[in-house]
Design a protein around this nucleic acid. Structure first.
Lengths: 212, 212
DNA sequence: ACTTCATGTAGAATTATTTCTATAAAAAAA
DNA sequence: TTTTTTTATAGAAATAATTCTACATGAAGT
């Protein structure tokens, strides 16, 4: 980050109030900035294609498209642009996924002002921002060699059972469909939950929505 | 709204970036204001109990409690305080419920700056803010007495229980959270399923994804 | 070849959930 | 104002799911 150089930011969030807040924060932190606003997937790509952007601050909750593809497309246009994901969603679940897909930082919307300033500064100075929590998780997954996609841990039969569970079938129904005892279904369910480190159906549904 | 009088606002939102944005907006719109911030259910009530507040701008997505009860409790402390709900959740589903429970306005987080300013001005001048859409829906549902959205068939308590169910909590956990017996939770669950004509959690999750 | 680990399978004991029934209170309709 | 309906609540009985344990089989590692 050189002094007296103009930096340009693109704030992509479907809530204008959030964009204004972020905008204010950037202006407090840096001099001579150029700030673009985008309230949708389409706008984000349009602005990114027409302007040089140093940092894209991206919410991953757009109604009109999924952010993994925004990232890929935007990166293709501007390989040097850094991306900071700024999301209300649980970083434990989403951060690694987005970092893998090309983001250089993940900032939680629940963060306080200091953390946000730290994140913005860090993005401009070092080009990245990752919380200790996420660093730990990356290390863990490297050491334990567990796949980034947790569903890969499941055996075929486990996936079969899991798919029926997320369709809303009960243990007994599944047992009948697969011609096994309901206690066996229970065992599979338990092993699925253990492997994914969850303990209820809602989380299993989340997992499948996320990773498949 | 008299000139030169100091008005006090309480912004209750778990995202500090949103509070900052709203704060900025208020300062642009009014002179001589006093602004309080609250990041949680507890803080909101504490501040509302210790300070005279003219307008509470309330997000309805707190991790530590449900906003219907915040409203009731806060209103009990300060009957003259106006409440503007400021939420990312679909107004079609939630607005009527909150207006019924004592809010005087419902502003969507996706609104643009003009709408937000309009809402804030309207709250201070006329004491209320309701979009044309909501007015129409009030009329429609008054005339036909049939809810457009199936989730509107659910009572407040039923929605409360449903939201906990789709987060993955079990009957007993929910019972403890709401201080009722687990059998009561069962009854609510049954009624929810009956009303929505479903019979499992996965479908309930679908319903909420679809209609909210 | 031997051991270890993952997989597919179940039974028994324990817990949790559902179903059915009931009731007081509030709201709406007559 | 009385009657009916909806809402919020719970207990008991019936049913379903979970937990814990176990074991045979095949694959992978040493």
């Amino acid at each position: 980050m050189k002094p007296n150089q103009q930096y340009s930011f693109l704030i992509a969030d479907d809530h204008s109030i959030v964009r204004q807040g972020v905008s204010l924060l950037i202006k407090e932190l840096f001099f001579n900035v150029k700030i673009f606003h985008a309230g949708s997937f389409k706008e984000t790509l349009k602005i990114a294609s027409e302007n040089k952007i140093d940092l894209l601050i991206l919410d991953i909750n757009f109604p009109d498209g999924n952010s993994l593809s925004i990232m890929t497309e935007a990166k293709a246009m501007q390989p040097d642009m850094k991306i900071l994901i700024f999301s209300a969603l649980d970083e434990d679940i989403y951060a690694l996924r987005y970092l893998n897909a090309g983001a250089s930082g993940y900032l939680n919307k629940g963060s306080n002002e200091d953390e946000m300033k730290q994140a913005l500064k860090s993005m401009m100075v070092t080009g990245k921002y990752i919380t200790q929590n996420i660093k730990d998780r990356i290390l863990d997954s490297y050491i334990s060699k567990k796949p980034i996609n947790p569903l890969e841990q499941l055996s075929n039969r486990e996936v079969e059972v899991a798919r029926l569970l997320i369709k809303g079938f009960g243990n007994l129904e599944i047992a009948e469909m697969l011609n096994i005892k309901k206690s066996t279904v229970s065992t599979f369910k338990n092993r699925i939950f253990e492997k994914l480190e969850i303990d209820n159906l809602a989380d299993l549904i989340d997992f499948f929505n996320l990773y498949s």
